[in-house]
Design a binder for these strands. Structure first.
Lengths: 166, 166
DNA sequence: TTGACGTAATTAGCTCACTAACTATAATGT
DNA sequence: ACATTATAGTTAGTGAGCTAATTACGTCAA
């Protein structure tokens, strides 16, 4: 997601307000700052994972597989839990297959289906990432102190109201 | 950016904690909720713009052009302000050109350069989007009441500390 | 039992990011 | 004056998302 690097200052917004009288300078700046900072948090995770030759999409798939008792799941379930289309999941699995982190195996009870399994290499990849990941999550969320809950609360308000944007 | 739809519950995280002792259940859940809600805000903007046949990338370019006194800018400046590579900006401009929302014109003083200009159709497109956009920003941020500043403050803490993730 | 509909996964083709390499032009330093 | 270096923009190729169409298989009802 592209988010503007160069946020408008008050002067620019006043120019826009001439043409679009609904502009409320403070609110627009708050909204854009929110988008920017949120986006940066996503990029932060991307660049952390890149150090382990991983991309967010593939990493989530590995994690979803590790959640399963037998380390097995159907592509359609993975797609739904990851929040991507099945076509996208096919692509993610292809990528993971090429790196040997998962394997495909036919399903005996329904021949339309396929089962994806976390390989030992996949588990090893997770083992190399997750401890560092959790340490960083602890440090980052810990930096909020007892305000962490408050942040989530306020963000939830926006989240619940996001359909006012429809 | 893919962000997990199916957040882990306490039980799943405890399973992970067996293997990765650094897991702090609350913090992980807060971190993932934060990512999810942030991502959803971006999607909200995408789907708003889609109603006007716009994508975030192209929309920001139109806005950046409207900021300029003469509605003219160099692709390299646009790329920097939008926070994308120059190659990406070339693609965005190509798309906008096809829709007639901007025009390319040669620069007389430096023949390597090109100037991008917002066309009347481009201005008209902005005029069709921006009033609704500002109304929605007002409503959304307004729903936070006086806590808007507090939310930004807390998010800033995370933003400033994002390099603990490196 | 077969025809219609539903479902699982994949494929094809689109968008919009990216990096690296290329072309053209400008600026600089010897 | 000319070779080097720097800059502007584009092109080529990759990756990960999407939708729509396709292939294969199941299910169900007349």
């Amino acid at each position: 997601m592209l988010v503007l690097q160069d946020l408008p200052d008050e002067q620019i917004l006043k120019k826009f307000a001439d043409r679009y009288p609904d502009v409320q300078v403070d609110k627009v700046i708050q909204f854009l700052s929110l988008l920017r900072m949120s986006d940066d948090l996503g990029l932060m995770l991307d660049s952390f994972l890149a150090q382990y030759d991983l991309l967010q999409g593939r990493w989530w798939v590995l994690i979803l597989l590790m959640r399963e008792d037998d380390y097995l799941a159907k592509p359609s379930d993975l797609a739904e839990k990851a929040g991507v289309s099945r076509a996208t999941m096919t692509g993610l699995i292809d990528g993971l297959l090429k790196e040997g982190l998962v394997s495909r195996r036919p399903c005996t009870t329904d021949r339309r289906q396929v089962l994806i399994e976390l390989t030992e290499a996949g588990q090893a990849k997770l083992d190399s990432v997750m401890p560092a990941y959790y340490q960083r999550v602890n440090a980052l969320i810990g930096s909020l102190g007892k305000d962490a809950g408050r942040l989530l609360e306020l963000l939830s308000v926006l989240h619940k109201n996001r359909h006012t944007f429809d």
